[in-house]
Amino acid sequence: MTDVKCFHSSDPSAWCPGCGNHALLAALKEALAQLDKKPHEVLVCSGIGQAAKTPHYINTNGFNGLHGRALPPAFGAKVANKDLTVIVNTGDGDSYGEGGNHFIHNMRRNVDITHFVHDNMIYGLTKGQASPTTQKKHTTEVQTEGVTLDPVKPLAMAITMGATFVARGFVGEKNQLIELMKAAITHPGYALLDIFQPCVVFNKVNTFQWYKEQTYTLPEDYDSSNKQQALMKAFEWENGIPLGILYKEDKPTYTDQREVLREGPALVNRKLSPERVAEFFNDFR
């Protein structure tokens, strides 16, 4: 096990005291340490938002890109270096709103990256507008009559899009969260872990207490290979929200399916020379 201190960043945190992100970050460092990862073996990608500041607060490689665009650079990084552990830490708005198209299609790719969504059910950084997961009737400065759109059900979406690891965690269940993170990181293929993360400033509806009361842990004997059942679980909301691995499946990853990636060393470790073009001139003769 790596000393968890290796993952401490010198950058002072700009998150509010009491924010769920602190516990989430601590769990992430712990999970990486327990998996014996070294800082340089990990790349954390993010978009923009409060959650998306994570790459600054953890001592690993980091790519803090554009709002909504956390997944495409993560995908590109994994193509470039299949040996790198690529993790996306970003918000619910970033993942399911601005970046919704990338969310859908990277699940279809089953690229071997881990997607941790800091789901505070609100836009934190821009001060409290509705996010795609904000519940109906929740009023904000913009949604003055309360949200009228149906919230997205990210886990149900993921299951129907063919995601091979679909799970939910809560920062209030720290040990469980660490285990879920480790399972997600070691899962070969795309892994979605939606993590309830209270925003103490802008979401006064879905508070720590609310999550605590609404959530329950899936029983030990829950069969995470049953897709139908997983889909039903993904829709559970009013009468308790399940925590744990809802669905898991082994399918060939993007790397497994692409010959150029599968065979040989990581692309970044290949020697290339201009001569390789010569064999293609005959196409034009």
Partner: peptide
């Protein structure tokens, strides 16, 4: 296969360029 190139049809141009940026950051030529 012959050239050792991965070609990916992205979901949109935003993805296409961001993928290339992530790949270049990670050290290949994309």
């Amino acid at each position: 296969s012959e050239a050792g190139i991965v070609v990916e049809q992205a979901e949109d141009e935003i993805a296409a360029i961001n993928m290339a940026i992530g790949a270049n950051f990670t050290g290949i030529r994309a």
